[in-house]
Write a protein that binds this DNA or RNA. Structure first.
Length: 801
DNA sequence: TCCTCCCGCCAAGCA
DNA sequence: TGCTTGGCGGGAGGA
């Protein structure tokens, strides 16, 4: 039965009308002799008319205070039928748009308060809803499933749901964001975009294989449902279908927004990620189309909830539908231990012995809060702490988008970022010839995913647009740690987010020499390449509308999250469900194994840094060291690696407490900060800034327990030669997240010296995303002048229509 | 022409 | 066994 279209004006009237009180009209019994397929028979026609016009009829009845006796109604209908014929009838039919799921969802939501009183539970009876909204049940399921994914409703029983409203939304979004980060969706997005571009030139390429390798084996990515305390998930079917459910898809879709910066996700990318996470064989076209369909369904509901808004992103490849997150900003999770999502996947847990920061901290400090969270596999991944750390010290290896420094500086949070930016990158640049720089850039861009293997000898290319040091680093100083064996010094970055996480002493901890990163702007031709595959977003959006997001973009760099071995480990972290005790036990067991893999130590040597060595990089790339996977997700900082316990032998760092900083520190809280190499340092002689003194170093090392009191670390020639820019003085900034002093690039005095070191590490003249230009001072030293800001974000043009 | 997504078939699984 | 739930994809309306 084809439904003729109806003019918007008429149908709009019908649709905007809400009939909260009116019971649906009862359709007169249909004469048996009426052929149901014929729309123009009086009876069938009448039926359709009733369906289409009943709101009007009812409102008319209300206005006239007519009785709703069926005979009168029928009369009215018949009367209406007389007048609405042919085209009129067609016009009376709601258009397709007006039957949309989004509109239906609006109606559905209008029935319930956003924030229902906790004492007054609203129950949803599907039968009632379908009757009152005049929709088939199937559509209600679509809505309810999405709402369920956000814990706005939960299933109570057959046909019956409880309405929670938006009470749980912040919590849910926070949990989803966390899971999304753990799942490294941002990296997957980057990978997909890269693949898209590559596929343009290699349509017959091994796309699926690449995708397969990108996402790992299908078993890696079991679908799981993130639950919240008190919102139990009771799917009607506990079968495998549950894991393909719209609920899970919806959650993952939301996750993509929450982890993306800007928070715009194209359907295509979302579908690919969902497919990639699902089954690799789903990569055929029909599956893709199906996913897209479902995403539209979900998007319609989310749009009704005003969580997302449809936009279009225009790329060189064309205009793509996308959605932009318009929901509440999800702040960083402050209750990690509470947000324990549980995998409800049907796949069996592989291992219970994977430690994680949460597990460690939970073991030590069991949360007093709600513990009803079910466990999500992705939350208990071995490399969690690695990823968190990486995310903060990496940036997306994407094409830069120019914005002016002034624009950038206008951002309210910019000063913080400036303060965080490692001045070391500047020095490194200073120490580089342009040729070397270009070579590095080419190298890094041609293989941006070149992830350094944890071999000390390796010299991974680091192509990192300036200014990607995460804001969260602003207040935590790196520790300069000499390594007597290798003669290499290291910077240890203490991650603030981990500062409060107390973990136990991890016995084997060695500072592993890592190649120094080369930090350069992106100038190679590949920048173009990357640009082409990127989505677009107006700079204005970044700069004015969502400044924090702009910065957050740099906090969520395009980092290769894990090697395949890590994925295996990650995969193996799936834990059994439903038993808190069991979980606790497994947590403990997992914790015991932490010595087998010590994921959070990121160390960058102060020596061994060479400037981008194109030849080396290229050869490694050819040799497969710089695999695609690695490239896309690798740390631009380079040399950020997890360290197996087997390599952690030399220096034991117990859990300790940095009194001056009031930071609880553990080995898991150690990450690397980019540090100049000797060569870098030697070649770069911007000398206006103070060097950290040996006494300061000793002070800090003693305080943090790296060396016993009384022991002095000899003056480190490397450190002494660290040139520190004084140009950062020009940058106003505010810190404040710790009790550290800030903004004194002048010669530090104890005990402020370590802070001064920090300052110097995280400052740069032009802010985090400045592409510096090298100039030569009168004394022959090189300096970086503030230049155009380069945002390692994709060029994005968004149109909302 | 392509995007969007309604619509309903039909299978899984529950009561 | 009937009903609920929901995956799925055809195909039509709309841009």
């Amino acid at each position: 039965l084809k439904t003729p279209s109806k003019p918007a004006a008429t149908s709009q009237l019908v649709l905007t009308e809400r009939q909260p009180d009116c019971q649906p009209l009862t359709t007169p019994p249909k004469p048996k002799e009426t052929p149901p397929a014929d729309p123009w028979t009086p009876t069938s026609n009448l039926k359709m008319l009733i369906s289409a016009a009943s709101p009007e009829i009812r409102s008319r009845e209300q206005r006239r205070q007519l009785s709703d006796s069926s005979s009168e109604v029928l009369q009215t209908k018949l009367c209406l039928q007389e007048h609405i014929l042919g085209d009129e009838y067609e016009k009376s039919q709601p258009s397709r748009k007006e039957k949309s799921l989004g509109l239906l969802c609006h109606k559905f939501l209008a029935r319930y308060p956003d924030y229902p009183s906790p004492s007054q539970k609203s129950y949803i009876c599907l039968d009632e809803v379908t009757e009152e909204l005049h929709v088939e049940r199937r559509r209600i399921y679509d809505i309810v499933n999405v709402l369920e994914s956000l814990h706005m409703v939960s299933r109570l029983a057959r046909n019956r749901y409880v309405w929670h409203g938006r009470h749980n939304l912040p919590q849910t979004l926070q949990a989803l964001k966390k899971v999304g980060e753990e799942n490294k969706y941002i990296q997957q997005i980057q990978m997909i975009k890269k693949r898209e571009y590559e596929h343009e030139f290699d349509p017959d390429g091994e796309r699926n294989e690449e995708m397969a390798s990108s996402f790992g084996s299908s078993e890696q990515s079991e679908m799981s449902f993130v639950e919240l305390p008190g919102v139990e998930f009771r799917a009607a079917s506990v079968n495998g279908r549950k894991y393909k459910s719209l609920r899970v898809m919806s959650q993952k879709f939301v996750m993509l927004f929450l982890v993306s910066t800007p928070q715009i996700v194209s359907l295509e990318v979302a579908a690919k990620i969902l497919i990639g996470e699902d089954q690799l064989e789903d990569l055929d076209k029909s599956k893709f189309k199906t996913k897209i369909r479902r995403l539209y369904d979900i998007a319609n509901v989310l749009s009704s909830l005003k969580l997302i808004k449809k936009v279009h992103v225009t790329e060189e490849r064309g205009r793509k539908p996308a959605f932009k997150w318009t929901g509440p900003e999800v702040l960083p999770n402050t209750q990690d231990t509470k947000l324990e999502a549980t995998s409800t996947a049907c796949s069996p847990p592989i291992s219970e012995s994977i430690p994680s920061k949460e597990q460690c901290s939970k073991a030590l400090f069991p949360s007093k809060g709600k513990q009803n969270f079910t466990r999500h596999s992705s939350l208990i991944k071995l490399v969690k702490s690695i990823e968190n750390d990486r995310r903060k010290i990496q940036s997306a290896p994407t094409s830069p988008v120019k914005i002016t420094a002034s624009t950038y500086q206008s951002l309210p949070v910019f000063p913080n970022t400036i303060a965080q930016f490692p001045a070391i990158t500047k020095h490194q640049l200073e120490g580089q010839s342009k040729t070397a720089e270009e070579m590095q850039m080419k190298c890094a861009l041609s293989s941006p995913e070149a992830v350094p293997k944890p071999e000390p000898s390796q010299q991974p290319a680091l192509s990192q647009p300036l200014g990607v040091c995460p804001a969260s680093h602003s207040s935590v100083p790196p520790v300069i740690l000499p390594h007597p064996q290798s003669g290499v010094s290291y910077a240890i970055y203490l991650h603030p987010s981990q500062a409060h996480t107390v973990t136990t002493y991890s016995p084997g901890f060695m500072l592993q020499p890592l190649p120094c990163a080369n930090v350069t702007g992106i100038k190679s031709n590949n920048a173009k390449v990357l640009n082409k595959i990127t989505t677009e977003e107006g700079d204005s959006q970044r700069g004015t509308e969502e400044p924090t997001k702009s910065l957050a973009a740099e906090e969520r760099p395009n980092t290769k999250s894990e090697t395949s071995s890590q994925r295996c480990l990650k995969r193996s972290q799936a834990l059994p469900e439903n038993n808190l005790i069991k979980r606790r036990k497994s947590d403990e067991e997992s914790f015991d194994t932490s010595s087998a893999f010590f994921p959070s130590g990121y160390l960058i040597p102060l020596t061994h840094c060479t400037h981008g060595n194109k030849a080396e990089c290229s050869s490694k790339e050819k040799a497969g060291v710089c695999s695609l996977q690695h490239t896309a997700y690798s740390s631009p900082i380079t040399g950020v690696i997890p360290m197996p316990a087997s390599e952690l032998k030399t220096v034991n760092i117990p859990a300790f407490h940095i009194t001056p900083l009031n930071i609880m520190l553990s080995p898991n809280s150690i990450a690397a900060a980019p540090v100049l190499s000797n060569s870098c340092l030697n070649s770069s002689s911007t000398s206006s800034a103070p060097n950290p003194s040996t006494s300061a170093l000793n002070f800090m090392l003693q305080h943090i327990g790296l060396i016993p009191a009384g022991v002095q670390v000899p003056a480190n020639p490397v450190l002494q030669h660290v040139p520190v820019s004084s140009q950062s003085e020009n940058i106003s900034h505010s810190s404040g997240s710790t009790n550290m002093q800030e903004g004194k690039p002048s010669a530090p005095k104890e005990p402020q010296e370590p802070q001064a070191v920090t300052e110097n590490f995280f400052r740069t003249p032009g802010g985090p995303n400045t592409e510096p230009s090298l100039s030569v001072n009168s004394d022959g030293t090189q300096r970086i002048s503030q230049g155009t800001l380069y945002i390692p974000q994709r060029k994005l043009e968004v149109s909302e229509n």
